[in-house]
């Protein structure tokens, strides 16, 4: 599904990713854990196509196609989805207008017909019900005045509607209370399927109790330094990141 080879990235002369290699297979849920500043969020932005970063070397292949040559919107149409750590508020842009514009832009890019308004509304309502999103929220400007938990649920709603192939969840658990964490995790788990993979970025093991990963990778200093099964997350929870920080200091 996704293969990252020797990725080297810098921003304003600061090297963030140092030859990162990572493979996520079809249908796999991979978790990335690591201390602050290890480059996790940078990785998520570079996969999604943020232009602030300079890619010095390497490639990111989605089903064999190098996405680094594609603009962010083309990557989205190809099936990449980033659930933002801090979803942005866009005053003046209605949530429904936004959702419909995104859905139809992606369909158009893929050569598909636009969704009819009744079909669109049905799809949004169904997804909103599952995520316990109040219909009143959908009438408001995108994310404006939403709580942290509401914004994260709105991210998962977008994911459910857009049906991407490869989902990156950047610290989706941050700012969530226990109930919201459960709702968001159930939303993600409902989307787990063959043909769809996830990269779940988190500091804490607790999210992985809800979204149980197939693989866990530890990231430090812009590289994947250890890979294991879901038990690796539990080890990290017990021992902390000291071992990896020490390796950074070394």
């Amino acid at each position: 599904m996704l293969e990252i080879k020797n990725l080297v990235v810098q921003i304003e002369d600061n090297r963030i990713l140092n030859g990162l290699n990572l493979t996520v297979n079809d249908g796999e849920v991979a978790a990335i854990m690591g201390p602050n500043g290890s480059g996790k969020s940078t990785l998520s932005y570079v996969i999604a196509g943020k232009e602030d970063y300079e890619v010095l070397d390497g490639e990111i292949l989605l089903d064999g196609q190098n996405v680094l040559e594609m603009a962010a919107d083309e990557r989205a149409a190809a099936g990449i989805f980033l659930a933002f750590q801090y979803p942005l508020e866009i005053p003046g842009v209605g949530t429904m207008t936004f959702l419909k514009a995104c859905l139809n832009a992606q369909r158009k890019a893929r050569g598909e017909d636009e969704l009819s308004t009744p079909d669109f509304i049905r799809a949004v309502n169904a997804a909103a019900d599952k995520l316990e999103i109040n219909k009143e929220m959908l009438k408001r400007a995108l994310n404006v005045g939403f709580s942290g938990g509401e914004k994260k649920r709105m991210e998962i709603l977008q994911m459910a509607l857009l049906q991407p192939k490869f989902c990156v969840l950047d610290e989706t658990d941050s700012g969530l209370d226990i109930d919201a964490l459960r709702i968001v995790s159930e939303g993600v788990n409902a989307l787990r399927a063959q043909g769809r993979s996830f990269l779940v970025i988190t500091h804490y093991q607790r999210l992985l109790n809800h979204i149980v990963p197939d693989t866990v990778h530890v990231m430090s200093k812009g590289q994947i330094v250890k890979t294991g099964g879901k038990e690796l997350a539990l080890e990290l929870e017990a021992s902390g990141y000291a071992e990896y920080r020490a390796s950074e200091a070394a």
Binding site: I90, G92, L162
Partner: peptide
């Protein structure tokens, strides 16, 4: 630029994303 990236990451081409932001601004 951050708002533009957010909209583009959802599949809107840059020109469409910019138009949406202009509409929101002037609206």
């Amino acid at each position: 630029e951050d708002l533009l990236f957010y909209l583009m990451a959802r599949g809107l081409p840059r020109a469409t994303a910019e138009s949406l932001l202009v509409q929101a601004f002037i609206g």
